[in-house]
Simulated scan of single mutants.
Amino acid sequence: MNFQQLARLDLAFSLLCLQHKFNQPVAKISRCISRTGDGHLYALLLALAWWFGHAANPDATDAQFSKSGLLAFAIELPLYWLAKNCFKRRRPHELSQLITLTFTPSDKYSLPSGHTTAAFMMATLIGQFYPPFYLLALCWAGLIGLSRILLGVHFITDVLLGAVLGIACAKVAMSLI
Rank of each mutant, 00 (worst) to 15 (best):
N2R: 10
F3E: 07
Q4S: 15
Q4C: 03
L6S: 14
D10G: 11
A12K: 09
A12N: 13
F13N: 00
F13S: 00
S14Q: 10
L15P: 00
L15E: 10
C17Y: 06
Q19G: 02
K21Q: 10
F22S: 09
N23W: 01
N23A: 09
P25C: 04
A27S: 09
A27N: 03
S30C: 04
S34C: 05
R35N: 13
R35E: 09
T36N: 02
G37V: 04
G37K: 06
D38Q: 14
D38T: 13
A43R: 11
A47I: 14
L48M: 14
A49L: 02
G53Y: 09
H54C: 03
H54I: 06
Q64P: 01
F65W: 01
S66F: 04
S66W: 01
S68K: 00
L70D: 02
L71D: 03
A72L: 07
I75T: 13
P78M: 11
L79C: 15
Y80P: 01
A83S: 13
F87V: 15
R91N: 14
E94K: 12
S96T: 12
T100W: 05
L101E: 11
S106Y: 03
S106G: 15
S106M: 14
D107E: 15
K108Y: 05
K108T: 14
G114H: 01
G114F: 00
H115Q: 06
F120T: 01
M121H: 00
M122Q: 04
A123Y: 02
A123H: 07
Q128S: 06
F129E: 01
L135W: 12
L136S: 15
L138Q: 02
C139K: 10
W140C: 07
A141Y: 06
L146K: 08
L151D: 03
L151W: 01
L151T: 10
L151H: 05
T157C: 12
T157W: 12
A163I: 01
A163P: 02
A163D: 05
A163L: 03
V164I: 14
V164S: 09
G166Q: 02
I167D: 03
A168Y: 02
A168K: 06
K171P: 01
V172F: 07
V172M: 12
A173K: 07
M174I: 11
